[in-house]
C-alpha cells in the first residue's frame, strides 16, 4: 500500500461567517505530484496555509506525516518546503545569504548549507547572481530563488502556491522544467494553480476546487475523459450572432457552452462536426478544433471559466 503523507477529512476554514474552505477530503501519497486547480478565491491558498501549519483549521481532521499540525506545528514545518503565493524573500540580503539564513532557521549547520548552496544556485540558474541583493532580481529569478531556498532543508513535501502566476511565458517554462526535475527525483509536490496547462503538465492527480468545495478529483487525463469529450470545436459568429446560432447548433454537438466571444461545441471528432455544420450551410467567421482541456472540465463543473 502506498504511504499517505497527507490526509484531510472534512477540512474547514471560516473567516467570520465566510467559509473559505468547506469540508474538503483528500489524500496525498508519497512521491505524488498533487494539484489544487481552481479560480481566485477558491480556497487554495487557505488550504496550503493550513497544511503548512501556519493557519489553524476551524474543523475537520488533518494528518501530515502522521501528525496534527495544530499540535506539532514546528515538527511538521521541519519537513516542509514552502513557496507561498507572494514571494517573501529577504530583500536586504543577497541571493546566497537568503539560502544560507533560511537553512539556519531550520537549524541546519553552516557546513551543510554551504555545501548545498552551489547545488541550489545551479538548480535555480542563479550562479551569476549569487552576490546580488534580492531586490535587483526579476520576478522569474525571485520565484526560482524562493523554490531553491525552500529546498535547502531537503523537505519531504514541497508546497508551491501558484508557482508561475505573474511570470512571462519563458520564465514559466524554465520553472516548469525545474519542477519537473524535482518530480522525477521523487519529491512529493503540492501545487495550486489556476492555469490548466500548468496542472496538466505537473500534476499526477488533482482536485478541482471552487468556492471552498471539491468539484472533482482525478488525474488530468481521467478528468477530461469523465467530464468532457475528446475534442472541442470553437466557432465564432461575431458577438451579436452567437446567441441565435446556439439553438441551431445545439442538436449537432454532444454538449454546447456559450462564452461571451465564442461557442464551444463538444464532440469526439471536431473536424467531422465542422463538416456537418458547413454542410448545413452554416459558416462561422472563425473555427478551431482542439483537444479538450481542464478548462473544459472546469466549465462543465461550474459553468464558469477558470481565468476571469
Amino acid at each position: 500500500m502506498t504511504e499517505m503523507l497527507i490526509q484531510a477529512r472534512g477540512l474547514t476554514k471560516t473567516y467570520g461567517d465566510f467559509v473559505a474552505v468547506d469540508g474538503i477530503d483528500f489524500d496525498v501519497a508519497k512521491g505524488e505530484s498533487f494539484g489544487f486547480l481552481g479560480p481566485n478565491g477558491a480556497g487554495k491558498s487557505t488550504t496550503m496555509r493550513i497544511i503548512g501549519a501556519t493557519s489553524v483549521r476551524t474543523s475537520g481532521t488533518l494528518t501530515i506525516l502522521g501528525k496534527d499540525p495544530e499540535v506539532n506545528g514546528p515538527q511538521i514545518r521541519a519537513h516542509l518546503g514552502v513557496v507561498p503565493q507572494q514571494d517573501n524573500l529577504d530583500n536586504e540580503l543577497t541571493v546566497s545569504e537568503n539560502i544560507f539564513i533560511y537553512g539556519r532557521y531550520f537549524g541546519l549547520s553552516s557546513s551543510f548549507i554551504n555545501k548545498k548552496i552551489p547545488e541550489l544556485l545551479e538548480f535555480a540558474q542563479l550562479e551569476e547572481k549569487k552576490d546580488t541583493k534580492v531586490e535587483a532580481l526579476s520576478g522569474g529569478m525571485k520565484r526560482r530563488l524562493t523554490i531553491a531556498r525552500s529546498l535547502v532543508s531537503e523537505p519531504d513535501i514541497l508546497m508551491l502556491d501558484e508557482p508561475t502566476t505573474g511570470l512571462d511565458p519563458q520564465a514559466r517554462h524554465i520553472l516548469w522544467d525545474r519542477l519537473f526535475r524535482l518530480k522525477e527525483q521523487g519529491v512529493t509536490l503540492l501545487i495550486t494553480t489556476h492555469y490548466m496547462d500548468e496542472a496538466e503538465q505537473l500534476c499526477d492527480r488533482l482536485i478541482v476546487m471552487d468556492r471552498g468545495k471539491i468539484m472533482a478529483e482525478d488525474s488530468p487525463a481521467q478528468l477530461i475523459k469523465t467530464y468532457s469529450t475528446k475534442e472541442v470545436l470553437e466557432v465564432r459568429f461575431g458577438s451579436d450572432r452567437n446567441q441565435e446560432m446556439v439553438e441551431v447548433l445545439r442538436p449537432l454537438a454532444d454538449r454546447i457552452e456559450v462564452l461571451p466571444d465564442r461557442i464551444l461545441l463538444y464532440a469526439t471528432d471536431g473536424e467531422q462536426l465542422l463538416e456537418q455544420i458547413t454542410a448545413k450551410g452554416i459558416h462561422p467567421n472563425t473555427s478551431l478544433v482542439r483537444r479538450s482541456s481542464l478548462e473544459d472540465v472546469f466549465l462543465r463543473l461550474t459553468g464558469r471559466s477558470l481565468v476571469e
Binding site: P74, F106, G107
Partner: peptide
C-alpha cells in the same frame, strides 16, 4: 534532515510549539 531531527528533539519540551 537535520531540521527534522532538531525539531523532534524538542518534541514535548516546554514551549516546543
Amino acid at each position: 534532515s537535520n531540521a527534522v531531527a532538531l525539531s523532534e528533539r524538542r518534541l514535548g519540551k516546554f514551549g516546543d510549539k
